[in-house]
Nucleic acid binder design. Structure first.
Length: 674
RNA sequence: GCGCCCGUAGCUCAGCUGGAUAGAGCGACGGCCUCCGGAGCCGUAGGUCAGGGGUUCGAAUCCCUUCGGGCGCACCA
């Protein structure tokens, strides 16, 4: 909302700098730390000090002489070291903010470089592909997977809000070792038939969680047994026989569970891409030919990689200092490594492979979210969730892949592999695609020592100084659904304390909304470069910097409007009348609330372009905190001065508009009551 | 060994491209419901921003270095 005004004033000041000093400078705009110093600040004089060899304050003085800013600027003053600070007509600005949309597309920082290279020219928005979740379909989702899914989902929401065309993909590695191990677990360890697995009771993902850690131990007991893993892996890749059928069954049932878990928190996808289809449609064969003819890979005749096709990396500075300057793409036994498959997949994502998947709707459709508390996530009854397929593709389907930019949400431990995939694109001459391949790297989630001990993963004898890494193989971790269940139970308990006579379904729906808000906010709040030591007590807290804190602020705001309506008073301000009110009516702390809300577009732009989504969470927190503060200091219902009531109501309306937007991006449900 | 990330209050962390008196939350202590719901608000205590150098009018922020911690550097994904 504020962005247009800032740009306008910035241009104005740039013209003044040009006429006074004859230099080109694009002034930045900030907000002073205290309202007494002004509403906007231009540190231009400080930035020009070196170039002009003058004291900042002297530069500011020269600039101020003859400087004219248009309305709604009321005055300009020099403050501090040489800031040019602007004071605004608060009522006029507030009226303008309420009348305008929160996002101004004309000032949106659309990625023009990418848009211009799009197949349809710069007029269409660039297509961004975001891949996230990507859980191995062999066990229940745990809290580490939740971090991935929530970050990916918030990124998707933010990009869409800024006007980008986004396609959300969830990659299903249904032919990997992890699925193979569970197949071995069912067939060789437990002696189950296909029918046994088909009819196994829910929760199937919980069952597999145990089978997977069981088979891990079983392999440990006798290393010879690992031959079964290799045998199963080959079966999965060829797609033939009972083991392959078992693998398909396990993957289908597990993916179904994962989709339900994610639907619970309002996370959905456009298309599920399956590794088995990448193999079945010979994507790698195509990529392999391209790599060979581009000279990007070579067959090793001797040495430790004898018989392998390798991609040399030593030419690139990025990989300088590596012990082994070559990366194996095709193993000596002829099978393809993960990186090889991923290069083929990445080529498809950019539309550079020259081959496409077949598609069909996911059986049963996209899982619905119960009560749909997360805004904008209910896919609707007729919504189709697409999956890739080799056998039975349908003719009519949306166009998938062929993005202008690709963002892969994968934890930071895989940075090296992501860089090799990018190097592969470069080696094929696709410099643009390589430049637009983004690895959204976040640090992984471990368990705090307290929580690890609480759950019995650590004993008092263990090293208590560091957190415990989760491990599916060892069965160490907190299942996503367990955490959600606990959150729901905890919030139901708290709601019951406040409202003892709620109908069970109303109580359950509210408890779900609070639980989702707490969980999603928790996952986005942390900086992505910081490892989360997951602590159950902290995650279950509903006070302080939490999702429920945001939700509660909106409940309070709603209550004011309800009371105003009940008292026969206006619960919305008249914008024209508001614009005429005296700026002095706005207390500084109330005005802070407005300024914070007015910066949302820039926060979301900065958050999504830097992939630091915690900025969005922090902005929401800051906004809610300012509201709670103003709520206590500036009452509306018992205020006798009608102008003061208007100004306060306007401030709260701007707050609501802003925080509702941020909660939608974060996927934190908004409640009427809690 | 090489590369990336981290080191800020008792604990968990914010501090954006260097800029106006280092901020939150939790925990501790003390206040505030005859109410616009206390999942909230206000206050007190608590910090040589790991150490050392450098660049600058100005450094928690940029550069170098030392010391701690984490992750990665497979014919596993």
């Amino acid at each position: 909302m504020l962005k247009g005004l800032k740009a306008e004033l910035s241009r104005c000041l740039a013209a003044q700098i040009r006429s006074v000093f004859n230099v080109e400078h694009t002034p930045v705009v900030s907000i002073p730390p205290r309202r007494a110093l002004g509403d906007l600040a231009f540190p231009a004089a400080l930035h020009l000090a070196r170039e002009l060899r003058k004291k900042p304050r002297d530069i500011a003085t020269e600039l101020l002489d003859g400087l004219h800013f248009p309305a709604p600027v009321k005055s300009v003053r020099i403050e501090g070291a040489g800031y040019l600070n602007v004071f605004l007509d608060r009522s006029a600005v507030a009226a303008r903010l309420l009348g305008e949309p929160l996002y101004d597309p004309s000032t949106s920082a659309m990625d023009e470089a990418v848009a211009a290279q799009g197949p349809n020219g710069a007029s269409t928005p660039a297509k961004v592909i975001v891949e996230h979740t990507n859980i191995n379909p062999n066990k229940a989702a745990h809290i580490g997977h939740l971090r991935n899914a929530v970050l990916g989902d918030v990124l998707v929401r933010s990009l869409r809000r800024l006007g980008h065309q986004v396609e959300t993909q969830n990659y299903i590695d249904d032919t990997g070792v992890q699925v193979a191990d569970v197949v071995v677990g069912f067939i060789d360890v437990r002696g189950w038939s296909l029918a046994d697995v088909e009819t196994a009771e829910e929760p199937f993902d919980y069952l597999c969680w145990d089978v997977y850690s069981q088979v891990g131990q079983w392999f440990e007991e006798d290393k010879e047994r690992q031959a079964l893993r290799r045998q199963t892996l080959h079966a999965l890749e060829s797609g033939e026989g009972e083991r392959a059928a078992m693998g398909r069954l396990v993957a289908r049932r597990i993916v179904d569970r994962h989709l339900r878990t994610m639907a619970r928190i309002g996370v959905g996808y456009d298309v599920l891409t399956r590794e088995s289809d990448i193999l079945g449609l010979d994507f790698f064969t195509v990529a392999f030919e391209k790599l060979k003819s581009a000279g990007a890979i070579r067959l090793e005749a001797d040495g430790k990689n004898e018989g392998c096709w390798v991609m040399p990396l030593q030419g690139s500075e990025e990989f300088a200092g590596l012990e082994d300057p070559d990366k194996v793409i095709v193993r000596s036994d002829g099978t393809v490594t993960y990186v090889g498959k991923d290069i083929a997949y990445q080529l498809w994502k950019f539309g550079l492979l020259g081959r496409d998947f077949g598609y069909r709707p996911w059986p049963g459709g996209a899982p619905r979210q119960e009560d749909a508390p997360v805004a904008g996530t209910d896919p609707g009854e007729d919504a189709v969730l697409w999956q890739t397929t080799t056998d039975d593709p349908v003719r009519e389907h949306p166009a998938f892949g062929a993005g202008d930019r690709v963002i892969n949400v994968i934890d930071a431990r895989q940075s090296y592999l992501q860089r090799i995939v990018r190097a592969g694109l470069e080696a094929l001459g696709h410099t643009d695609a390589a430049a637009h391949s983004v690895h959204f790297a976040y640090e992984f989630v471990s368990l705090s020592t307290g929580t690890a001990r609480q759950l019995g993963f650590l004993t008092d004898a263990d090293d208590q100084s560091k957190s415990l890494d989760m491990s599916g193989r060892k069965g160490i971790g907190v299942k996503a659904d367990d955490l959600l269940d606990q959150l729901e139970a905890r919030s139901a308990e708290q709601i019951r304390e406040r409202y003892s006579d709620l109908a069970p379904d109303v109580l359950a729906a509210r408890a779900r909304a609070v639980a989702i808000g707490a969980l999603r906010f928790f996952m986005v709040k942390a900086t992505t470069t910081r490892k989360i030591a997951f602590d159950l007590d902290e995650a279950l807290a509903f006070e302080g910097e939490t999702g429920p804190y945001l939700q509660y602020s909106l409940v309070r705001e709603r209550n004011i409007r309800h009371k105003l309506d009940a008292a026969g008073m206006a619960s919305e301000v008249d914008l024209e009348a508001l614009a005429q009110l005296d700026s002095e009516l706005w207390a500084d702390d109330l005005w802070d609330l407005v300024l914070q809300a007015a910066q949302i577009q820039q926060t979301v732009e900065r958050g999504s372009s830097s992939l630091e989504l915690s900025l969005i969470a922090r902005a929401a927190l800051d906004l809610a905190a300012k509201f709670h503060h103003a709520y206590h200091r500036h009452r509306i219902l018992d205020e006798e001065n009608a102008d003061l009531r208007s100004v306060r109501l306007a401030g709260f309306q701007i707050f609501r508009k802003g925080l509702i937007d941020l909660t939608e991006l974060l996927g934190v449900p908004v409640l009427e009551q809690m």
